[in-house]
Amino acid sequence: MLRPGDSILLNDPFRGGAHLPDLTLVSPIFDPSGGEVLAFAANRAHHADVGGATAGSVGATATEIYAEGVRIPPVRFEIGRGRTTGPDGEPAVDNELNESVLDLLLANVRTPEERRGDLRAQTAANATGRRRFHDLLADHGDRLPPAMTALRDYSERRMRAALADLPDGRYEFTDELEGDGHGNGPLTISVAVEIDDTDVQVDFADTAAQTEGPLNAVRAVTVSAVYYAIRCVTDP
């Protein structure tokens, strides 16, 4: 169960990450009573090295994820100790770094002090996000959560209006990668996009299967790329 002050660290591509050098830190933001999560502060930072067979952790010769670096499932990187009062008298959260997780990570990278600094920058960024959200909550009180919901609803309406302007139909495109660096190829990338009013279905069924080289796209990366492409086309 998440507590005020907790932060979760991960880079596992099969659990929402991208590639291993991208470390994501997610921190829940609770209401003043600490009973309900109202929002999340999150950031993703590309780290110069997370171990593995190749310096930089992006090796063209890798044939399995274990050669690419340390794989981190969602772990508690900051441990919340509850709410407290900051030096300025404002509400704050009390937490501490999970030193065991940090030690394990730093023992498996080539530049541990650089990684330590970048990770502390990530925790500081989320702490700032948490603090500024509470500033908004102090200014606007109970009006803030409904305003957040209204903003998301407005965003959906604008996106659906932009999608409705696109012609209905099925659109297909196919391209190829020459190879994966391990003698496999060409590799087909095929997409079919079906537009029906404000609904869009994107199908990669005819794309090549997983290949030996480090070119595979996990679900999180694929979905993110689709969202980005649609956003660029519609620009709502």
Rank of each mutant, 00 (worst) to 15 (best):
A162Y: 07
L10E: 08
D103C: 01
G82L: 00
R116I: 00
E78N: 13
G213T: 11
A53P: 01
P28V: 04
V223E: 14
P74R: 00
N108H: 11
D235S: 15
T63P: 00
R130Y: 11
S224M: 08
L106G: 02
V26Y: 10
E194C: 01
R116Y: 10
D203F: 04
G69W: 01
C232M: 14
A67Q: 15
N126V: 03
V101F: 07
D12Y: 06
A55N: 07
A92M: 02
A164Y: 02
N184W: 06
N95E: 09
A124Q: 09
A225T: 15
R81L: 10
A161K: 03
E194D: 11
E114A: 12
A208M: 03
S33D: 10
V202C: 09
D206Y: 01
C232V: 14
T85I: 13
A18G: 14
E212V: 14
D88N: 08
T222D: 04
A127M: 02
V221K: 12
T198Y: 06
R15E: 11
G59A: 11
S100L: 14
I8R: 02
D180S: 11
H47P: 00
A18R: 15
G185V: 06
D22Y: 15
A41D: 07
G86K: 01
D153Y: 07
D199N: 09
G52E: 05
D175W: 05
A45V: 15
L25S: 11
T211F: 05
D197L: 02
V218T: 14
G5E: 00
A48F: 03
A121S: 10
V226P: 14
D88R: 02
S27V: 04
E113W: 06
S155Y: 10
D199K: 08
F77R: 04
L215N: 14
G35C: 00
G86N: 03
P214R: 07
P145I: 06
D168L: 06
V226S: 10
E113F: 04
R115L: 14
L151C: 04
